[in-house]
Amino acid sequence: MKGALRVAVVYPDLLGTYGDGGNGAILARRAQWRGFEAELVQAVSDDPLPEADIYCLGGGEDGPQVRAARSLVDDGTLARRAGAGAVVLAVCAGFQIVGRSFPGAEGEPHEGVGLLAMETVKGEGPRAVGEVLVDVTGLHDLPVLTGFENHGGRTRLDDGTTPLGHVTVGVGNGGGDGSEGALHGRVVGTYLHGPVLARNPALADVLLSWALGGASLAPLDDAAAERLRDERVSAVSRRHRRGLHRRTGSDR
């Protein structure tokens, strides 16, 4: 690749509520630590979306989400760049935006960017809030994903759309099939906050490797992240087992 790797955090002013801006920072740092030149761009919604190799979209409130989607559709850069092979990581409200349609505050449908063949509607029950574990089926050799979800929408993947994986703890897409997230080419969508790349450095490296033209990446010191992963996975599995036991107990 020519020049520095450009990582764009898309509309931090609209999609910056849940700490997902960390994903962009993590990708840039992991590239730099390996000796690649990398540039982190905070792409605010007033300006045209800049050209970049990786686009990161995060979670946001209902109103700002609608504005972000409208801007991205009008601007056109994200769809064009994704079509040309740029990497997209879209989280929560950002995940919903890159689908075909998503609900506004009153449940009314809004047009998405259409990078993933899926639709999101307003959920019936309470918001899905809590820790999530995901067995990854859509990408090879990735360890279990850990994250924190917080969303009211339910996402239905079209037949033939590849989910990122299926939840063993948590709600995920919430369509009843246990799926979580979606994948198409180099576009990855998920409901996981944390931020997701802080808790799952292996996923970060998949995205980086795509953006760097399949380069094999030297290992980094991920001891801190490994300790965090161990703790989250075991804390969540423990709580989950206890919950199941309680339920079985009361059934009897």
């Binding site: 700490g19 960390g22 820790e131 917080n150 906050h193 931020p195």
Partner: peptide
């Protein structure tokens, strides 16, 4: 609050 993601802000 159960989600410390805000540390990244």
């Amino acid at each position: 609050g159960g989600d410390p993601s805000w540390l990244w802000d």
